[in-house]
Amino acid sequence: MAKSFSFNGDGINFQSGDSVAAALIRSGYRALRRTRFAGQERSIFCGIGQCFDCLVIIDGKANQRACLVPAKQGMQVEFQEGAGKA
């Protein structure tokens, strides 16, 4: 059975070694968050943990870098609005 995590409730299959961002982009997703001020959509930019543009909420924790965090079975990933606080 393919391994998967959820993104806003959708099932995302991933391969071993995938980062959260790599699996999402492979599945055709791009936008990962919206900015605090202008409400612009953002995705990965540097891809290697330096720019902090790829922030998502993972298992309830905001501001996680999707390009760095390894994908894990059953993880709950959410699109982050602004600073990620409810």
């Binding site: 990962l32 995705s43 930019f45 540097c46 891809g47 290697i48």
Partner: peptide, 9 residues
């Protein structure tokens, strides 16, 4: 915009 990234990414 999503879909613009560094060449390294």
């Amino acid at each position: 915009a999503p879909g613009v990234m560094s060449a390294g990414a």
